[in-house]
């Protein structure tokens, strides 16, 4: 682990800055309280108070860690206060959305590479789709789907797929087009069919591009699922946890949910990375 020292240094710097920010941002509340009670606060008391408030402007790192620990290990996994419960609700929508988005992305890319009309028409729409703020689209998706009786996991998965198909399209179009003229000419000398060209050359050549895209798109899927939980006032999921935290000024809950989402995303990207390494190694392309 030669890279551990720099990582820890950066982490330590962030934590130090965070603590400084905690003191600075939460001090006002402490001073107000003291003024109301008609007492003076020493610097020592100020430090202690700013890091232990119930609804701080910025919770201290150890408070967030405590909240996270509590949410994950301090509750029964089936409890509504458990981050494991909310995490798995969001995760299932994320995974379904990721699968839909990836398949849609691959299909679109195959169409773009093989069909001239799609080549000319699809990409601008795909790009336009990503310029629309997801927060604006999400409520409409949920309302429209609810009106035809689709509720629960699927609407969230659709929003998740909406965000995740795009990196896959871009990566796969590039990947499927990565074989050079010489490699294509070689297959022509064998009178290879377009299907053979696809399965034997284009698809394997696109694998490194696909995995790079999947790492981006799985993280986007998670964002999509969380955003999908916000407008519906969902009762479960990390998004719902964020929302209820903000209703009640539970800043520690918000930060704990945010970190839970970040850890989940990191975990998902790591899993894709492991699959990537395994696949490329089997293909002899892992150097």
């Amino acid at each position: 682990m030669r890279s551990l020292a720099p990582i820890l240094t950066v982490l330590a710097a962030i934590v130090a800055l965070w603590y400084a920010g905690t003191v600075r941002l939460n001090a006002q509340w402490t001073y107000d309280q003291a003024a109301r009670a008609g007492v003076e606060v020493t610097f020592r008391e100020l430090l202690a108070d700013t890091m232990a408030q119930e609804r701080p402007v910025l919770p201290a790192p150890h408070q967030v860690a405590q909240g996270l620990w509590d949410g994950v290990f301090g509750q029964k996994p089936s409890s509504k206060r458990s981050l494991v419960y909310h995490g798995q609700v969001t995760l299932s929508a994320t995974l379904v959305g990721f699968v839909i988005g990836t398949l849609a992305g691959i299909l679109l890319a195959v169409g773009i590479v093989h069909n001239r009309a799609m080549d000319l028409s699809v990409m601008p729409w795909a790009i336009a789709s990503q310029t629309i703020p997801i927060l604006a689209i999400a409520p409409m998706v949920i309302v429209v789907l609810a009106s035809i009786g689709v509720t629960g996991l699927l609407p969230k998965a659709v929003i998740s797929a909406y965000l995740s198909f795009f990196p896959v399209v871009v990566g796969m179009v590039k990947g499927l087009r990565s074989p050079d003229a010489m490699q294509l000419d070689l297959l022509r000398t064998y009178s290879a069919s377009p299907a053979a060209t696809f399965w034997k050359l284009r698809l394997p050549a696109s694998m490194p591009y696909l995995f790079a895209s999947l790492k981006v798109s799985v993280a986007a899927s998670l964002v999509g699922a969380i955003v999908g939980e916000l407008p519906a006032g969902a009762s479960a999921g990390l998004g719902a946890r964020l929302l209820s935290g903000s209703y009640y000024g539970q800043t520690i809950q918000i930060w704990a949910a945010l970190f839970a989402a970040a850890i989940l995303a990191a975990g998902l990207v790591t899993v894709i990375g492991v699959i990537e390494r395994g696949t490329l190694r089997r293909m002899g392309m892992d150097r």
């Binding site: 010489m182 490699q183 070689l186 000398t189 290879a192 394997p204 050549a205 694998m207 002899g284 392309m285």
Partner: peptide
């Protein structure tokens, strides 16, 4: 046909590359 560059598929072994036209 032999091209200027070998143009072997990096994801196929040498035998796999030679098998390519035979499969097609």
């Amino acid at each position: 046909y032999v091209f200027q560059a070998a143009g072997l598929y990096p994801w196929r072994t040498i035998a796999g590359n030679i098998r390519l036209p035979l499969e097609i």
